[in-house]
Nucleic acid binder design. Structure first.
Lengths: 221, 221
DNA sequence: TAATAAATGGGGGTAATTACCCATTTTATC
DNA sequence: GATAAAATGGGTAATTACCCCCATTTATTA
């Protein structure tokens, strides 16, 4: 870590909404709110690519990150950043609620996970600990993940099938694209629906959207 | 209007994210950014019901509103506010991009419509005009609506059918709920799909989501 | 090595969707 | 009142989805 003891920390903020970046910068920089002498915001990014760029350039102590951004969002960015700047604490600040995605973030070893809904007190009060090596997941997410029915782990073929189903493919088309018998495609579809506990394609799409198994923009390419 | 000439305007901010409310409040209140003496933020709201409440209470000159909020979002709120506080300028500041929804907002006579994506300069520079009776729609939305294929106008029955389809109902169930023959329900479904240019329920859901014809949370009640 | 799960493929059957054809009645609009 | 659109209902057929049953091969794991 570049900064120890009482020296000032520095941060990069990544969010596709300027109003959010401005709000966060103002909060981080204000002396006494998060840190005694404030946190210096040395860079901002509006998308995933810019985030990686800025982190490589500045090697900040903290990356405050919204994971729903255009151009390379989420997990890919996290991996890259870990590679390029291993001492940067990654704190995700997001509006998503899909248990599947949230669980994935926790597994990918983010240092902090906070919700845009509700107050920001938890974020501000936990950031100092995180900057010094701690980790924290917002209480609302902990509760949500505890109560959520665990996202069933799908096999590779089932994932492929799901993707194709929600993009409008029929069983026959899926079978052709996977190079297997229509019966096999049908079988994957059936297992998929059994695991997710749904009885129709519509319910399948709803569940998949809720669980973050697919993204909004995957459909109908 | 309560305020004329050089006196200070007052505003209510409605958004479900505290960081956005804080950012907007800071911007509105800063002298010289939007108004010479700043705009007094007299209330904040985190959902539609609270928004109506606060506007009835304060009768502000300006309501800065995000329309994707829990509990009564969007058009219903707008109508109520026009009834309770006719001199309040309503400015929508949103992240949505669905042409259908945006068009609806313009038709419902909002005084301003701005995007959370991209910079906020346009919002800050146009607010003074709006406070004095002008109207403005962000350039990005104007372009988007010009290029968008016009959302087909569905009949009442077709809308009802669409809603039930995406909530997982079968033709038979829809017919029973509408009190008509299964054949009629089937006919509405067919017209619907023809108008939207789709050939399956999955495509129907995708199109409807994209066009903002339905909301994310309508499914599977 | 035995057990388990994934992936493969098939038979058979019911239910539902999708796609055409046709018609009448009601309602709004000019 | 005439015209158009909306809403109603029917027939028929092909396709697809959905739900059981069954089996074999392969890879992983205990």
């Amino acid at each position: 870590m570049k900064n120890g003891g009482n020296t000032q920390f520095c941060a990069v903020i990544a969010d596709d909404h300027e109003i959010v970046r401005a709000g966060l910068q103002s909060a981080l920089e204000r002396p006494g709110l998060v840190e005694e002498h404030g946190i210096a915001v040395v860079g901002q990014a509006v998308n995933g690519l810019e985030t990686i760029e800025k982190v490589k350039l500045h090697r900040p102590d903290l990356l405050l990150l919204d994971i729903s951004m255009p151009l390379a969002s989420g997990a890919e960015v996290l991996l890259d950043i870990r590679r390029w700047s291993r001492d940067t604490k990654i704190v995700v600040f997001t509006a998503i609620t899909a248990p599947g995605l949230l669980g994935g973030l926790i597994e990918s070893q983010v240092d902090g996970l906070f919700s845009k809904s509700g107050g920001n007190d938890e974020l501000y009060s936990k950031l100092p600990l995180i900057l010094r090596g701690g980790r924290h997941v917002a209480k609302v997410f902990v509760d949500l993940l505890r109560d959520a029915t665990p996202a069933p782990d799908l096999t590779q073929r089932e994932r492929q099938t799901l993707t194709m189903i929600v993009s409008g493919k029929t069983n026959a088309e899926i079978a052709a694209l996977m190079g297997v018998s229509p019966k096999t495609a049908e079988k994957h579809r059936a297992s998929l629906m059994r695991k997710l506990g749904v009885r129709s394609v519509v319910e399948l799409m709803s569940r998949a959207l809720q669980d973050g198994l697919i993204e909004q923009h995957n459909h109908l390419k």
